[in-house]
Structure formats: structure tokens, C-alpha cells
């Protein structure tokens, strides 16, 4: 493999995806005082944000995208929870919903952010339902929507908006 091939999207994309998986955990740990200040429970979901960019900028045609989605879900389950299935399903269903929406919506920034918003809600709802299966859920749906879904969506959509054009340029460069 020549050196220039290392700068291709199919190489750079999964490395950044893996990196962001750990960044999410580090942010949660480093900023835990702010993110989990009672009664809030805010999650940094940069990993899903990176998957959103791939869907929005049609990068799935350049690489084995679904394989990366499943692998990152399995790794997330293994490292963060030790219970397999929950986050793999959450990542897969969120990306599947975003892809279906992408077919319907146009390419504008606001349409993209709306797609990410729906993807995030799907992601969080899957994890909420999985909590009932494993018997660890302790919060009613209203409190969950108010104190977790709403702030998480606001934070992550804002981050996605800030990174939108730089990431678009990066994808153009790497193609």
C-alpha cells in the first residue's frame, strides 16, 4: 500500500470512529460533574455524530460502512457495559433510520441536522427500552425525555452543526 492510500477515507474514517469512541468516555469522565449534575444526565455521542456525517455526505459507498457500524457497536458494548447487544442495536437502528431519512430529505445543513436529531432520539430510545429488558431502568419516560434526551440532543446537534462544514471539506479531501 502506497503512503497516499493511507489518507483515503476508508482508512481514516474507522480510525477517527475508534478514536471518538474513547473520546466519548473520556469526556463523560472529565466533564462528569457538568454532564451528570442532578437531575441532568447528558451523554456525549460524538461516535454517532461521526456515523451521521458518513450518511449525510454519502461516504458509505466508499467503504464497508455497515461493518464499521456493527464493529463499533460491539466494541462499545464490550468496553463500556459488558452486556452485548444494546449499543450494537442502538447504533445499527439509528444509522438505518438516518439512511432512510436521507433518501427523503435534501442535502442542506438543516435537513441533515434534523436527520441527526431523529437518529439520536432513536439511539437513546433503544437504550431506554434495553434497560427494561435487563431490569436496570429507574426513570420514567417523561423524566428521561426531559433530563436526558433533550439536553443530549441539544448538545450533540450543536457539536454536529459546528463540525459540519469542516468535516464535509475533510471528506472531499479524503475522497
Amino acid at each position: 500500500m502506497a503512503f497516499w492510500q493511507l489518507t483515503r477515507l476508508r482508512v481514516v474514517y474507522p480510525i477517527v470512529l475508534l478514536f471518538l469512541l474513547f473520546v466519548d468516555g473520556s469526556l463523560m469522565s472529565g466533564m462528569g460533574g457538568i454532564f451528570t449534575a442532578f437531575p441532568w444526565h447528558i451523554l456525549p455521542v460524538l461516535t454517532l455524530g461521526w456515523l451521521f456525517y458518513a450518511v449525510q455526505f454519502d461516504a458509505e459507498t466508499d467503504m464497508p460502512f455497515w461493518l464499521y457500524v456493527i464493529l463499533i457497536g460491539v466494541l462499545f458494548d464490550m468496553y463500556y457495559t459488558g452486556i452485548f447487544g444494546t449499543y450494537t442495536l442502538a447504533f445499527v437502528s439509528s444509522v438505518a433510520v438516518m439512511m432512510q431519512l436521507h433518501k427523503v430529505l435534501d442535502e442542506r445543513l438543516l435537513s441533515g441536522l434534523f436527520m441527526f436529531l431523529v437518529g439520536l432520539i432513536v439511539y437513546l430510545l433503544v437504550t431506554y427500552v434495553a434497560g427494561f429488558i435487563t431490569g436496570v431502568s429507574s426513570v420514567g419516560l417523561t423524566a428521561f425525555m426531559l433530563f436526558e434526551v433533550m439536553p443530549t440532543v441539544i448538545l450533540n446537534v450543536m457539536i454536529a452543526a459546528v463540525g459540519y462544514y469542516p468535516v464535509w471539506s475533510l471528506f472531499q479531501f479524503l475522497r
Binding site: 469522565s29 466494541l75 464490550m78
Partner: peptide
């Protein structure tokens, strides 16, 4: 296999945690 994967991931996480923990500590 899971333990090996977790140890490996823990190593990567330690490196990445350094700057983010520093930012978190400053905010706190």
C-alpha cells in the same frame, strides 16, 4: 478475549483521557 480487548481498549483510553481529563479538571 473480552478481557484482552478491554485491556487493549483501556490502554488507548488512558492516552486519550489525559487531555480531556485536564480540560474537565480546569472546568471543575
Amino acid at each position: 478475549i473480552q478481557r484482552f480487548g478491554n485491556d487493549l481498549a483501556g490502554g488507548v483510553s488512558r492516552v486519550i483521557a489525559m487531555p480531556t481529563n485536564a480540560v474537565g479538571r480546569t472546568a471543575n
